[in-house]
């Protein structure tokens, strides 16, 4: 029997996580409080987990270290070892965005990327530049949003402003409000669906790539350890021609999996494994490993 793809297991984990945050508020209502909280801060049977950015905002504005800081550090520690797996394996907005992305590829066939279609010269040039020019990296946009948000919070706004840009935050807060139902958070669904609609017609994962401030700290944490989990590329196994793009087409973040060591790509890759799946029927040149690409698994 064909072993299940990484994609299958990832969808299972993503769905489980998304559904858990639907169920938790109802469990809480039934006096089961082992799990409580949302994607901004969570309590896992006494163990604090937190969005590192919300933890950083509180720590900076209050100038004190609270439980939430430990929760944020735990999240950063996970990213330190496994990379930004939160984005691709847990975040419910990531799941919705990926669904919309594959839907947009199906229904809007115009400009659809087909595997093995040769790259146009412009695209070739673009792919060559990926990661080389840091200023053209979408990550820089995300980083700027974080810096502006932190500056605003320090200067003008008396509350953690960047939390309002947390898509998983809006998702989980909507479900938190459902059993209480005295004050519904309609802003959440409006923001989520509105952004998904924009992504449907632009056929790009705009929020995750260009906006999401919550991903910035975990992405940076993922850069610190060279030996962390990442996609490794073994050039001698690659059977595809240089301009073939079966792995590139699989990447919803528009990265080139055959350049996994460039810093610009390393900071964006979320270890979703879609390129690894795409390569399984080819030369199996792409695989997960701990350590820099090429070194891992020889």
């Amino acid at each position: 029997m064909k072993p299940a793809s990484i994609h299958f297991w990832r969808r299972l984990v993503q769905l489980g996580c998304a559904l858990a945050f639907v169920a938790i508020p109802f469990l809480n209502r039934a006096e089961i409080n082992v799990l409580a909280g949302n994607f901004l801060a969570f309590n896992f049977a006494g163990l604090p987990l937190a969005d590192p950015l919300s933890a950083l905002q509180v720590t900076l504005s209050s100038l004190s270290v609270d439980e939430v800081a430990m929760g944020g550090l735990i999240s950063l520690g996970i990213a330190f070892v496994l990379g930004p797996v939160f984005c691709s394996w847990l975040c419910p907005y990531g799941l919705l965005s990926e669904w919309v992305h594959s839907l947009s590829r199906k229904i809007l066939r115009k400009n659809r990327i087909t595997p093995s279609a040769p790259l146009s010269p412009a695209e070739k040039q673009k792919s060559g530049m990926q990661g080389k020019k840091l200023m053209e990296n979408p990550f820089i946009v995300r980083l700027s949003i974080v810096l502006v948000g932190l500056a605003l919070a320090a200067a003008i706004v008396p509350f953690p402003l960047l939390n309002q840009l947390s898509m998983p935050g809006w998702y989980s807060r909507f479900w938190q409000h459902l059993p209480i139902a005295t004050a519904m958070l309609w802003a959440g669904p409006v923001i989520l669906l509105g952004m998904l609609l924009v992504e449907l017609f632009t056929r790009k994962r705009l929020w995750c790539r260009y906006v999401c401030p919550q991903s910035v700290l975990i992405s940076l944490s993922g850069l610190l350890l060279p030996a962390r989990l990442q996609v490794a590329f073994k050039p001698r196994c690659c059977t595809c021609p240089a301009n073939d793009r079966s792995c590139r087409a699989a990447c919803s973040l528009e990265l080139d999996p055959r350049q996994p060591t460039s810093l610009g790509q390393r900071v964006q890759c979320t270890n979703c494994g879609d390129c690894v799946d795409a390569c399984r029927s080819r030369g199996r040149a792409l695989g997960f490993g701990f350590g820099k690409a090429g070194k891992a698994e020889g």
Partner: peptide, 30 residues
Amino acid sequence: QKRCISCGQCAQVCVFNCVELVPDFFLGGT
């Protein structure tokens, strides 16, 4: 206001379901 990150755990653990989560205004916290 500076510290509350709208995680809602207070409302979820409230034994008597007294704590309500209320949006302060659109971009403020809940």
